[in-house]
Design a protein around this nucleic acid. Structure first.
Length: 684
DNA sequence: AAAAAAG
């Protein structure tokens, strides 16, 4: 299901240089801060940098029921998987996590949006010159789609000519992007093998349990959450897609984030992948774009002007987001394009040329496109960073800064910026605030993966024993497994070389394994993922490229063959299991090389009510700095809590009657001062 | 120190 439709059509052609590249004057060397007309008067107060006094408000905090909540969320994905194999759907409302939302029957109606009369969405019917489409062509589909949210021309090919996406489907004889994205099976995606998992249990969803997920917000004038999609003014076409996704009720992150985003506010949000995070930023973006009456986009030869930019740290994640966004935007006329490296650029260029409203991209390819002047960020109104803490981590931060601050993207406060991640270290929050304006901080309790559903084990394994130990685990697992089949096991290692070597060794020893890491070609990466997902090679050896965001259903076991140095990475890694309503297992091989992780790991496990081996507790107590992970390696590691509360002005203020001074994982921390011990955090 | 992300 990893669709690299943009990529592997032809490897043969070399990248053709764009000879008609606009002159440099189109791309000033100095950052040009363009304030488009539409931004005038928008979000005025937020034009001043943040760090205003943060009022304490908006706290919705409930304890208990979290475990139930998690299992509920996960059960939903179980259902969705079952759907794929025509297992009867439960009558209860089903939350289907993003990665499974393309499994629906292929009968999504082809209906135009009945134009509800809402002023915000109304637009002058009739094709008009100077439309929002880069081609500036009329929108012939308007009549057909109705005057409501229907923005006909999904993309107008360069060189004018009117063509809505219906037309395009006909005029382009290849499969179009706008084929029904809800039909994976007839699309260009390969679903075979997923049926193998059809016989999963089928649980009803208790959405009421969602109410108990702890949520923390801070910032000025936080818009109140909503309880239903109906309360939100998203537009009928988008609502239809939400229904097609069987997405009946908003998840907690959506309940809170969507109103915030619709209010035009900047947002820093902590929420686990799989909790509906992608939808949480896609819905407001799509809705906002539909809402726009006319956006005159400049016409510069071969340069396209997306209105929204979504960045993610890995190519696979970008694809995943693109796939989801396409579903949400189906028939809305909002065009989503993905651009990432490792695949031939030409097809991506072609897609861009056909028009783009929302661009999903990895940083490198994006910069490439910008430098080719095939793309301009002048018209960006929405910027979303997925896995934002990773994006602003050391390796990525300069690139992101370049894209956001040194190209032609509108300033913060002019554009709307939304940052999402499951973890938000304090130091990264500080960095991130450069990109945000008077933002709202939002933390939603983990939904669906990190700890409660996952049994975490730590074993002391010397470096030299790791392989045989892994072998033991795999053998045991195979014997216990159903039908003698090897359960999907994701093995994380430290290095790319180590990944190849371990894969080779596993294969030699009769365990079908494959590997994914950054030294493999994109094609190999995609193949490896698919092979893993379908169970063909039920063991996947991976570097951290697979640690974040990827929704791989049915991973039964995550083995930290090499532990990461960063507890955040550990959290992201083990979050690959415990999905789909199953209890996941996470095993870590710990040895003398991992001492820096002793304390944070032991704290994390305690917090998650895991059994902590006595030896680990001993190591933890000996760890430097008292072992608080928020101080380790010089980098403060707070997350799950607005750092603004702790730094300049938040100090010693006890907003919540204590608690939550720790990390994103709800680890009660003895650092941070003054908070009552034992109080559960928002991430409990 | 490693991984990711452009080719």
């Amino acid at each position: 299901m990893w669709s690299f439709g943009n990529g592997f059509g032809g490897f043969t052609h070399a990248v053709k240089k764009n000879l008609e590249r606009p002159c440099d004057s189109d791309f000033p060397s100095k950052p040009r801060k363009f304030i488009p007309f539409w931004a005038d008067g928008l979000n005025k107060s937020s034009l001043t940098p943040s760090f205003k006094r943060i009022s304490k408000q908006g706290l919705i905090y409930k304890k208990g029921e979290d475990k139930k909540t998690y299992s509920v969320a996960n059960s939903a994905s179980e259902i969705a998987v079952s759907d794929n194999s025509f297992v009867p759907r439960p009558t209860r409302s089903t939350y289907v996590p993003p990665h499974l939302r393309n499994r629906q029957a292929s009968d999504a109606p082809n209906l135009p949006g009945p134009a509800t009369e809402r002023p915000g969405f109304s637009r002058t019917p009739g094709g008009s010159q100077g439309s929002r489409w880069s081609g500036g062509a009329p929108k012939p589909e308007l009549g057909r789609l109705g005057p409501g949210y229907a923005y006909g021309g999904a993309a107008v090919g360069r060189g004018g000519g009117s063509s809505g996406w219906h037309n395009r489907s006909r005029s382009w004889d290849r499969r179009e992007r706008e084929v029904n994205p809800f039909d994976d099976d007839i699309d260009d995606k390969n679903n075979d093998g997923e049926q193998a998992f059809s016989e999963q249990e089928n649980t009803g969803i208790n959405f009421d349990a969602y109410e108990d997920i702890p949520v923390e917000t801070s910032g000025e004038n936080v818009p109140p959450p909503v309880n239903t999609f109906a309360e939100i003014d998203l537009g009928e076409l988008l609502n239809q897609n939400i229904r097609r996704c069987k997405y009946v009720k908003p998840t907690p992150i959506q309940r809170h984030a969507i109103p915030i985003a619709l209010a035009g506010r900047d947002l820093m949000a902590c929420a686990q992948t799989g909790s509906g995070k992608t939808a949480a930023f896609c819905f407001p973006i799509i809705s906002g774009i539909m809402r726009e009456q006319y956006v005159q986009r400049p016409r510069v030869a071969r340069t396209v002007y997306p209105l929204a930019l979504i960045l993610s740290p890995t190519r696979e994640l970008s694809c995943q987001i693109h796939d989801e966004a396409r579903k949400f935007s189906y028939q809305t006329g909002v065009k989503v394009v993905v651009a990432y490296g490792g695949a031939p650029i030409n097809q991506q260029l072609r897609e861009l040329d056909r028009g783009v409203d929302i661009l999903v991209a990895t940083p490198g390819r994006l910069v490439d496109l910008l430098e080719r002047a095939r793309l301009s960020l002048q018209m960006i109104r929405y910027l979303a960073l997925d896995e934002a803490d990773r994006m602003l981590d050391m390796g990525f931060e300069p690139q992101i800064r370049k894209i956001v601050e040194q190209m032609d993207m509108p300033n913060r406060g002019v554009r709307q910026t939304m940052l999402f991640s499951a973890t938000f270290p304090r130091e990264i929050q500080r960095l991130a605030s450069d990109f945000l304006s008077n933002y709202i901080f939002l933390a939603v309790g983990r939904v669906g993966s990190s700890t409660d559903l996952i049994v975490q084990r730590v074993e002391f394994v010397h470096e030299s024993d790791k392989r045989s130990h892994l072998m033991d685990l795999l053998h045991a697992q195979k014997e216990n497994g159903a039908h003698g089949k090897q359960a999907l096991t994701l093995v994380f290692v430290e290095t790319k070389k180590g990944a190849d070597s371990l894969e080779h060794w596993l294969c030699l020893n009769g365990f079908p394994a494959t590997t994914i890491h950054g030294d493999r070609t994109q094609q190999e990466r995609e193949l490896a993922l698919r092979s893993f997902k379908t169970g063909k090679t039920p063991i996947l050896v991976a570097t951290d490229v697979a640690a974040r965001g990827l929704d791989i259903p049915h991973v039964a076991h995550v083995v930290n063959f090499d532990l990461p140095n960063d507890i955040d990475d550990y959290v992201h890694r083990i979050g690959r299991t415990g999905r789909a309503g199953k209890s996941g297992l996470a095993t870590a091989f710990f040895n003398e090389g991992n001492m820096s992780l002793a304390r944070p790991l032991s704290e994390l496990m305690q917090e998650a009510n895991q059994e902590v081996p006595a030896w680990l507790t001993r190591f933890a107590s000996r760890a430097p700095y008292g072992g608080n992970k928020n101080r380790r390696s010089g980098a403060g590691r707070f997350g799950g809590r607005d750092f603004r509360r702790e730094s300049s002005f938040g100090k010693n203020l006890d907003y919540y009657g204590g608690g939550n001074s720790g990390s994103a994982y709800g680890v009660p921390s003895n650092y941070g001062g003054g908070y009552a011990p034992g109080v559960t955090s928002a991430w409990d």
